[in-house]
């Protein structure tokens, strides 16, 4: 390669400086404004970004904590979709973080409206460490419990297991939960009568497949009391 390079217009140099990131203060602000206003300058900047970007291959990937995604969802403008939004895990994660009780009520209301049950559903926000980990709704008519993950973030080795703790204080296993989607669990018939208002739901971290003993063996990370809607 020779040191003799073709003459380059001043604009292209400025585009390169902006793309590389060496400008500061008023110079950077002015260059950013030009990129926003002038298509030809913007494409010169984009061309420089394309030239430099293979370098980013040297930067290692780092997983961001789940709280970042929750904050992104919370920062988005109000939802403008007309259908399907209630199925979105992201939506519930964001909403339940912001307004957990409302989210629980909405899930309950959807089940309520959908099934026209005889009895009002029960709900619980399952919280621990100042965060809402899951939101649970019990449809007493079909004797099933739907649990939606909220701020819960997956543990590397253990899985979340859901427990019912009725008035006698003894935990009964209900089933395994998921960090990435809602699960619906059929409540065993012998527990149905115990699944009432003021009973407590708890989540513990257990080996894959669940506690081998029938009682929680790992830490209980979150609890919540069932209440009638």
């Amino acid at each position: 390669m020779s040191d003799v390079t073709a003459p380059v217009p001043e604009d292209d140099l400025l585009a390169a400086e902006l793309a590389l990131g060496v400008l500061a203060g008023a110079e950077r602000a002015a260059a950013l404004q030009r990129a926003a206003r002038e298509a030809s300058f913007a494409s010169a900047v984009a061309a420089w970004e394309e030239r430099f970007v293979p370098w980013a291959a040297e930067i290692a990937e780092v997983s961001a904590p789940p709280s970042v995604w929750e904050r992104i969802v919370a920062a988005l403008p109000a939802d403008k979709q007309t259908s399907g939004w209630w199925q979105s895990l992201a939506f519930w994660r964001g909403l339940s973080l912001a307004t957990g009780a409302l989210a629980a009520a909405c899930i309950g209301a959807l089940i309520y409206l959908g099934n026209a049950p005889q009895q009002a559903p029960l709900t619980a926000g399952i919280d621990g460490d100042g965060r809402r980990h899951f939101v649970a709704t019990i449809d007493t008519r079909s004797s099933s419990i739907a649990v939606v993950p909220a701020a819960y973030s997956a543990d590397a080795t253990r899985e979340p297991e859901l427990w019912l703790i009725p008035a006698d204080g003894k935990p009964r296993p209900l089933g395994m939960l998921r960090a990435d989607r809602a699960v619906t669990i059929k409540i065993p018939s012998e527990l149905a009568a115990l699944t009432v208002g003021n009973a407590v739901l708890a989540v513990s971290l257990e080996p894959p497949g669940g506690s081998p003993t029938g009682s929680p063996t790992g830490p209980v990370i979150a609890t919540g009391k069932l209440t009638n809607l």
Binding site: A60, I72, S88
Partner: peptide
């Protein structure tokens, strides 16, 4: 957006 986030956030966080 969540798909884009899942596929790219580790790189961009880096």
């Amino acid at each position: 957006l969540q798909t884009v986030y899942r596929l790219t956030s580790a790189k961009l966080f880096g």
